[in-house]
Design a protein around this nucleic acid. Sequence first.
DNA 1: AACGGAACCTGAAAGC
DNA 2: TGCTTTCAGGTTCCGT
Length: 266
Amino acid sequence: MPELPEVEVTARNLRRWLRGRTVDAVEIPATRIVRPAGPRALVELLDGAVVRAVERRGKWLRLRLSTGTLYSHLGMTGKWVKRRRQDPSERHERARLDAGPSSVRYLDARLFGRLVAAHGEAPIAEWAALGPDPLVDGLDPAQLRPSLARIRRSIKETLLDQRLFAGVGNIQATEALWRARLNPERPASSLSAREVGALVRAIDASINETLQEEEGPEIRYVEEPGAPNPFRVYARQGEPCPRDGSPLQRIVQGGRATVFCARCQR
DNA sequence: AACGGAACCTGAAAGC
DNA sequence: TGCTTTCAGGTTCCGT
């Protein structure tokens, strides 16, 4: 269940595994994640392609190939992993690219991810619609404040808007609000300039700390059985707030869980 | 335009 | 034990 940090780690891994290499074998079964529908366009794009660059914006990956462009979104359960060429396909394997010594596999149990074949220079609509990315562009509080001022919904729900905070998801939103000491139910429009500044710094800090924790060849998402929870408050309802010790609350906003400290988040 | 809610999927854990 | 419910870090679409 990847957000910006997990997708960034994936981009770094794909760069190491594939950049400068030629894809010499491709396996893509027909699933709903493939666009355009049917594996033909994707196989045609990838077979024999040289991987020139791997980029990330928000939760999207973009592989620039000698033949065109591959976009990848990991949805809730997608991950790219490296195997040996002789290793058998594994459970939920939805794509396989062999290049040099590497056999890179895309695994995705719930099929919420996307693999999109594109040609030409124009980015796909989903990529074009993304707002500023905290790592690629940096977030600008001065630019953000007037946008937030027009939004009546809660700041927590607003943080999930990819047109405003590309790459922020439910965990980073939860963590950033705790770091910034902001109550998740506050209307986005109610944040002062000072608070928007604190929020932006908190988003950057949380993303960077998560990146440090998760850097490595294979990420274990926190919802997987037995995976550690590296976060301060996410999924820690009932535990003491790391700052003031009062029990962390769990509420639901827009159908998504938020964990926060009712005492120190104002 | 903006918002809330359902839909799209699978699998693990918790509840009965 | 086994069946049912709940929940999960994603986006999109539809109705109001």
